[in-house]
Computed example of a mutant assay.
Amino acid sequence: MAARLLSHKVADLCLGKPPLKSLSASATIRHALTALKSTDDTHISLWTCNHHHISDQSLINPCRCIGKISMVDIICFLSKEDNITSPSTALNSPVSVLISPDTSVVRHVDPDTCLVDAIDMIINGAQNLVVPISNRTTLSNSKRKQNLHKEFCWLTQEDIIRFLLSSIGLFSPTAAYSVEALGIIDSDILTVNYHAMASTAVEAITTSLADQTSVAVIDDDGILIGEISPLTLSFCDETAAAAIVTLSAGDLMAYIDCGGPPEDILRLVETRLNERNLLGMFEEFGVYSSSSSSDDELLSSPLTMKSGRYSRSSSYSARITRMAEAIVCYPGSSLVAVMIQAIAHRVSYVWVIEEDCSVVGIVRFSGMLEVFREHLESMMS
Rank of each mutant, 00 (worst) to 15 (best):
G183R: 10
I184L: 13
I185D: 13
S187L: 04
L190I: 10
L190G: 01
V192E: 15
V192C: 14
N193H: 14
N193P: 02
Y194A: 04
H195Q: 08
M197S: 13
A201Q: 12
A201D: 13
A201I: 09
A201H: 15
V202P: 02
V202I: 13
I205Y: 06
T206N: 09
S208T: 14
L209M: 11
I218C: 08
D219G: 03
L224C: 07
I225Y: 03
I225N: 04
E227N: 05
E227C: 10
P230I: 10
S234F: 04
C236N: 05
C236W: 06
E238I: 04
E238M: 06
A242V: 05
A242G: 13
A242R: 01
A243G: 07
I244N: 05
V245R: 05
V245L: 06
T246V: 02
S248I: 00
D251F: 00
A254V: 00
A254T: 00
Y255M: 02
I256L: 05
D257V: 02
G260C: 03
P262A: 13
I265H: 11
E270A: 05
N274R: 13
E275D: 14
E275P: 01
N277M: 07
G280T: 10
G280K: 07
G280L: 05
F282R: 04
F282P: 01
E284V: 08
V287H: 09
V287T: 15
Y288F: 06
Y288C: 09
S289Q: 07
S290T: 12
S290P: 02
S291R: 08
S293V: 15
